[in-house]
Design a protein around this nucleic acid. Sequence first.
RNA 1: GGCGGGUUGCCCGAGCGGCCAAUGGGAGGGGACUGUAAAUCCCCCGGCUCUGCCUUCGAAGGUUCAAAUCCUUCACCCGCCA
Length: 421
Amino acid sequence: MKLIDDLRWRGLLAQSTDEKALTQALEKPTTAYIGFDPTAASLHVGNLVVLLVLRRFQLAGHHPIALVGGATGLVGDPSGRNDERSLNSSDVVEGWVTGIRKQVSSFLDFDTTTNPALVVNNLDWTAPLTAIEFLRDIGKHFSVNQMLAKESVAARLEAGGISYTEFSYQVLQSYDFLELFRRHNCTLQLGGSDQWGNIVAGLDLIRRVEQGSAHALTVPLLAKSDGSKFGKTAGGSIWLDPEMTSPYAFFQFWLNTDDKDVINFLKIFSFLSHAEIEALEKAHSENPGLREAHRALARELTTLVHSPDTTTRVENAARALFGQGDLNELDEKTLGSALAQLPRTTISKDDEIPTWVDLLAATGVVESKSAARRVVKDGGAYLNNVKITSEEFAPEKSAFLYGKYAILRKGKRDLAAVELI
RNA sequence: GGCGGGUUGCCCGAGCGGCCAAUGGGAGGGGACUGUAAAUCCCCCGGCUCUGCCUUCGAAGGUUCAAAUCCUUCACCCGCCA
């Protein structure tokens, strides 16, 4: 099956320039790029959609380039926002670039001899530009009329204004495309559909400056069936960085996918074959309670982003901790490694044991002691799967399994660990 | 630079001297029902040493027994004019 047809089947095609021409171009190995701006220390699951499309291109024999926006990240993309971004210092952005560069790299193959991946930073060609060069050599090719007509700009003018800085963003991104066209004969830019305007601006620039022809392909913005924003939970975004979102939480995030979304997500995020996904779809519709599709999704993604080992560990941890069976039946080693996956706090053997409320607050599962108290009051507080009802309740030392572990539970599925040391 | 409008809790948005930790909606949390799902229903939703105390309504001062609400200055945003 051709790449384009596969992408269509997975629901990964939004818009493209002349599809016939593009399909034809893709008959031969083509160089394609996607840009990621450093707006945080890590990428999140939302970024995964397009990043994995780039991987699909590489797997299909094309040359992938991942661009990290060391320059554009300093300016701020107005797309999809209705207010101005606050600028981050260049030190901060530089740090983020390093982290994101590493993350992006883990999804691409640099060792293959036929079509190795490339990671670039647009600061490399943007930083040396002088303001005069920028205005004369690049700015001259842009019509303010057209820039104003871009959805990202028009929306902001409507919503309350835009700074000259962010207004200029599309020029920088266009210049990136031009540079990659020149340096690496890159003739295709991929991106989320909110990037369409920025991408076609780059096509125009390439045509004007180099009389060259390139293509654009965008991926739909991921929509959940209930309309809520993908990739956010109570605790915030789901990050790829295991320090920011634990692999346990990462696995749980996918496992808790809405039934209505699970098959779509398998298509979008997994590299399972059509036949495998169709089999899961069948299994899911026959017995949704088993959640085979959810499990497959969580396994695939945890393995892809973390590792097969990690997947085994967190899945075992969940099985061990999730209610079924008596906690006392878990051997010390299993329990210890399961708890290692959870948010945790430690207390000294010699100290008096704090209340459940204080312990939960210490693990960071709730934001404040008041929030922890509320959980108790609302009847959602458990110690080692036993419900507790008093805000003053403090566990006895004897309640600790193997003399050292206790499991705090908030509600049905939020777990945290306490360890006596 | 001038004139006018605005800045409220995670977000949107009421309040416009006391009854205001502040109406309502969304997001979020707990419970019931379930399948660690969705929908639905009920409850909660600033913090703390929690029958009370402390901090919040752009910032700083002021008036008042009492201010998110009035006055002054400053900052930022929006509109019109220059």
